[in-house]
Design a protein around this nucleic acid. Structure first.
Lengths: 363, 363
DNA sequence: AACGTTCCCGACAACGTTTGCGTGAATAAA
DNA sequence: TTTATTCACGCAAACGTTGTCGGGAACGTT
């Protein structure tokens, strides 16, 4: 009895410990009476292995479903085939679409993606980037948090020659490849559209000023105003953070400046603005026009359907991933880091279409 | 000249190769004239190391910002501190929120998250799961693809004792921990709400029938009908795939059955239904009511604001991650695998609010 | 003085893989 | 027959870390 129970316990323990145990090159070597080096070379189809031996090894490996241990490879080759992606928030349509694009390219080129979130916090961004480095990511795709004004933590990594590509929220101070939407053009087009439909007092509600896209979009906005001889009124400009209820008071405040249009620089802000305006019973586009920067697929279904500048999120992710992997694999030896701008697309919907009468009135 | 250029090239090469080189335990040992074992023990605060030596080592390590190499640790300990997440699509509000929840918990408990997408394809799911295993993930969080009817690829892993937790799209055949919304209750509540507002011919448009949630939701729908003595009419039931334009013809088809309400079993389907109905000029809720299963934050801003059953995506992710990590860390020795249901919340908005007159007419 | 403890520390193996080098055997060339 | 050459394979080191073992020195106990 005792002996039997011990026996069963042993079997259980063995099963438990070895069941998940994937087969290694050593197992193959032992089974075939070869050395690990021979097996390794056979699997890599080295010329210095007898074809017959190769056949044996490969057959056996396939039969037992051998998979090389990527961790051992990483340790040896000092590369992980992992790229780290640092975004402010995953649960944001824009970023999840970008990640989608990244993953597609990475997958095709044999890399995996580890996601890190900075939660719009500078401190967490620093920590998270360190984590990614400690995890031995081969390269980093970063979109800066909105509270990041100091980028030395990134610069240090660049100086250590860690491949880095920035996307969307980039920093001018960093001399790296960057991939963004053409924010200037997009903002210019949106503003111009509002002007051409007769609007003059165009409020611009945007995200914190540190990050690059804010400045580019603001520049586009101002350039359009200037082109049409409309003076820039900084009372019509507001920065909104990422809190829950930040938008409403800002809208209230802006309404005091009697704007006839709102240009919101992000998805979240556009929706917040729409909600606030509706809540206050302000007619869109009757009293004010609205156009947003967005990636929501439902702009069409809103009330009213919302004009937007669409950012090619998927494409940004794809291009950024391609650039990074090229960088990792050393295909850019001497070239200058490039700043890539992906064109956007403006979709005019009801929220900014002023009918002819109203337009002539306004004018 | 030649010698100088060679010298510079050497320096460049050295710099290039060693700049990123993080410091190892060996470097510390060499610098302090100790053995690697001593350094290792000193850093782990072993009792058998002289306090003075410890101080020296720890000081030096901190000064040079030593970080243990997680890859070496993984190789040695046969664990990666990585959890693999397999979802049909990242760029889906529900899943990105789930991932958000997963990441939050994983981060706190010292794990990282690698994302895999099955793109709703069975073949890619199998491949991707294999990838995750080959990558030595310590455990897997899986939401099955809609085309997955055979789950042997998952079962095999379970039999190999790989910790697995299923969420949202689970399979009854698999004896594992699962975390889902309470789909039956949610569907029951939604249907009951439609009935209580006077609807009788309630169309149900849902996702492919293999996956668990479809069946649970359908069961809830039917149970509500039964409770109110309304015969189940299978002509009012439609399955939609994940193609671009699948919803519209289905709606057209359903409209032939003169329904007075639509209950859509997913976010995407609800929005597609809304779009199709609007396109056809059908008044909501005048002619038909609409209620969706959704996670979109903009339901309120739609025209009309859409009634929804909200799934607690973030919470599902958190609970699933917790369960998995407990499983990985062996905290469940003998316990039965649990099927956890997270309660949902129904939010009634205009799209299903029938005014009194209309209601009495319909009745 | 002989012995047992305690304290600190180093050597070594192991995790899975690749690779430079060495080597015995068979073959070819002299 | 001797000497090169080619072929096919094994040995050992390395990647960074931890744990087992063992051992020298200093101390305390008979």
């Amino acid at each position: 009895m005792g002996a039997a129970s011990v026996k069963w316990r042993c079997i259980f323990v063995l099963y438990y410990y070895f069941a998940l145990d994937t087969i290694t090159i050593k197992d193959i070597a032992r089974a075939l009476n070869l050395s690990t080096s021979t097996v390794s070379r056979a699997l890599r189809d080295s010329y210095e292995i007898n074809p017959e031996t190769k056949r044996l090894v490969i057959e056996y490996a396939e039969r037992l479903n051998y998979r090389p241990n990527p961790i051992a490879l990483s340790l040896r080759e000092n590369r992980s085939r992992v790229i780290g992606v640092v975004v402010p928030q995953i649960a944001n349509n824009f970023f999840s679409q970008v990640i989608n694009g990244i993953e597609a390219i990475a997958y095709n080129r044999g890399y995996h993606v580890i996601i890190f979130q900075s939660h719009e916090s500078f401190e967490r961004e620093v920590l998270t980037v360190q984590q990614a480095v400690a995890r031995k990511a081969d390269g980093l795709l970063i979109s800066l948090s909105s509270s990041t004004s100091d980028v030395t933590h990134i610069r240090e990594l660049q100086e250590k020659k860690l491949p880095i590509v920035l996307f969307d929220r980039v920093a001018k101070e960093l001399d790296s490849i960057s991939v963004t939407a053409d924010n200037f053009e997009a903002a210019f087009a949106a503003t111009e559209h509002l002007i051409q439909t007769g609007r003059r007092r165009i409020a611009h509600i945007t995200i914190p000023p540190y990050i690059s896209i804010t400045q580019e979009r603001l520049a586009g906005y101002r350039a359009a105003l200037e082109k049409y001889g409309i003076p820039y009124d900084e009372n019509l400009l507001r920065y909104a953070g990422f809190g829950q209820n930040e938008v409403e008071p800002i809208i209230d405040d802006l309404l005091g400046q009697s704007p006839d249009a709102f240009f919101a620089a992000s998805d979240r802000l556009a929706l917040g603005t729409l909600a606030a305006l509706k809540k206050r019973g302000i007619a869109i586009p009757g009293q004010v026009s609205l156009i947003g920067f967005t990636n929501t697929p439902v702009a069409d279904l809103l009330a009213p359907p919302m004009s937007t500048v669409e950012q090619p999120a998927l494409e940004i992710g794809q291009v950024a991933a391609e650039q990074l992997i090229n960088l990792i694999e050393g295909k850019y030896k001497g070239l200058q880091p490039e700043r890539i701008k992906i064109p956007t697309r403006m979709v005019v919907r009801e929220s900014s279409v002023v009918d002819v009468d109203a337009k002539s009135n306004v004018n």
